[in-house]
Design a binder for these strands. Structure first.
Lengths: 96, 96
DNA sequence: TCAATAGTTCGATGGCCATCGAATTATTTC
DNA sequence: GAAATAATTCGATGGCCATCGAACTATTGA
């Protein structure tokens, strides 16, 4: 059997994720990252209606909430969704 | 087969729910309502650290987001979680 | 080395909203 | 009817935060 350990969210993490997801534009960004792992900031659709500063801010929030990994490579940043964390969040919500 | 139709959330509903859930105290209230359907406002644990006005406000938000049904009966209000709506929200999140 | 590109940081600002006290409505009980 | 109880409404306030422009760092390419 694979060692697919279930992530366990702390209360803090849970709150941070809930908060991160609550902003529509931030969630939209999250959706795009989820749909296309490795995507860079400047390819996000939001990029033409939100300033780079704001996008950077949102990504920082998503990263600090543990939802998005950011791998800086050269002058770009590759974004990926942490599916395990996301799943842990869903599990927690489902146990309501 | 039962007519268990899947609720479909509008974008507005989805945003409202995400927002409602993002507040820790509001989520705590939601948890209690979920755990004990028919519960009244004054029996909520939050009741000793949050003012009635604030509880009422949160319940209004939860109700307007479609998550909680409020049945007024006499001078009390019976609260129940709309499980179908909650499930629809989970489904939407899961499709990320 | 210069210009362009990708992204971040910083400080300021404006808006939203959680919270509360006070007043109010409605119901129950005595 | 008066007092008590349950909940709502209203207005005010304080704090948080999304957003931006500007300045900055770092990398790439010419």
């Amino acid at each position: 059997m694979a060692i697919a350990r279930k992530s366990r969210l702390t209360q803090q993490q849970f709150d941070a994720i809930a908060r991160a997801v609550a902003d529509p534009r931030r969630f939209a960004i999250l959706q795009q990252v989820a749909a296309c792992p490795g995507r860079t900031c400047s390819t996000l659709e939001a990029h033409d209606c939100i300033s780079p500063a704001t996008i950077s801010h949102h990504l920082k929030e998503l990263n600090e909430a543990g939802l998005v990994d950011i791998i800086r490579e050269g002058r770009t940043a590759q974004l990926t969704l942490r599916r395990d964390i996301w799943q842990a969040y869903l599990d927690r919500l489902a146990s309501l």
